[in-house]
């Protein structure tokens, strides 16, 4: 603990300094509010000035999050949060780069980018607000929806196919920090995000973020979550992490895995003026 200003009882930067004046249009009760709160608390705790951080997102309810922060933001196209975030980090390695979005954006439309972002191991943090439904388009099955979920008129008998397993995929593909949080525990989630940002390489934080409008039964998540993937310390060995995932019921919380593979960060390319770049494309 360090001494601080008695007037504020907080470090120099407060979580509220990272919240913009834009009012979220999420439904009241949405778990994404807690993720916004956790991100802002994490950035404040790490003391990262807003102009030294970026949040890139794709499309979906949760992908609106850059607008609700004061850090740089890039609300990109569907499924493309990760290539945009990778480009930002490679071009501006001094920035703290976060990518954020939902399970549909990240694991379906952007599924291939997810695999290769894990494989590339660029130093950034990917926060997936997983509600197992496409909320923005009024409640269709997503990649992480249970096969027997019958509440959508598009899949009245349930999707009938196994749910995507993001942590298994991330571990297989090479992510170096893998964790799962829950929106009813926003302070613990802030801690997970802090650790993810600090860890070198590609970090995934899957956040169980209930959609109370289209999946009201997810309010019961709070009765199902439990800690630690069966062990209080993260695995540092992939084989051990896979073994823990085999016993995971989808509601284990905490850090699953911390790896130490080298980060991909090529040396910066020589700079050029806009005129020099344009000259390369000139038609003679």
């Amino acid at each position: 603990m360090s001494a601080i200003d008695a007037d504020t009882a907080a470090p120099v930067l407060k979580a509220s300094d990272y919240k913009s004046d834009v009012k979220p249009v999420w439904c009241p009760g949405c778990g994404d509010f807690s993720v916004l709160s956790a991100i802002t608390k994490a950035l404040a705790e790490l003391g990262i000035p807003p102009h030294e951080a970026v949040v890139a997102s794709g499309i979906g309810c949760s992908s609106r999050i850059p607008a609700y922060t004061t850090v740089y933001g890039f609300h990109s196209v569907h499924g493309r949060a990760l290539p945009v975030a990778s480009g930002i980090k490679l071009a501006r390695p001094e920035l703290t780069v976060l990518a954020a979005g939902g399970d549909g954006d990240g694991f379906s439309i952007g599924g291939n980018h997810f695999i290769h972002a894990c494989r590339r191991n660029v130093d950034m943090t990917y926060i997936v607000m997983d509600n197992a439904v496409y909320g923005m388009t009024k409640g269709q099955a997503s990649p992480t929806t249970e096969p027997d979920w019958t509440a959508s008129k598009l899949t009245p008998d349930g999707p009938g196919i196994s749910a995507f397993q993001p942590l298994e995929m991330a571990l297989s593909a090479g992510a170096q920090f893998i964790a799962r949080g829950f929106t009813a525990n926003p302070n613990t989630l802030a801690h997970l995000i802090c650790q993810a940002i600090r860890h070198p390489g590609f970090s995934l934080v899957q956040v169980l973020s209930p959609c109370i409008t289209y999946r009201p039964e997810q309010r019961a998540y709070k009765n199902r979550v439990h800690q630690h993937f069966g062990h209080p310390e993260p695995a540092t060995d992939r084989r051990e992490a896979f073994a823990r995932l085999m016993d995971d019921d989808g509601f284990s919380l905490g850090v699953l895995y911390k790896g130490s593979q080298p980060v991909y960060q090529p040396a910066p390319a020589p700079s050029a003026t806009p005129e020099e770049v344009a000259a390369q494309f000139a038609i003679c």
Binding site: M1, S2, A3, I4, D5, A6, A9, A10, P11, C27, P28, G29, C30, G31, F33, S34, K41, E45, T183, A184, N185, P186, N187, T188, A190, H191, P210, I212, R219
Partner: peptide, 29 residues
């Protein structure tokens, strides 16, 4: 008075959040 800095996750609340904070999930449009 000198106040210590305590990270949010080290605060000694009965639950994860501060006690007087209405849970997000209590909201409904």
């Amino acid at each position: 008075k000198e106040l210590p800095h305590i990270p949010p996750w080290e605060l000694k609340w009965p639950d994860d959040e501060a006690p007087e904070t209405v849970a997000h999930e209590e909201g409904h449009y």
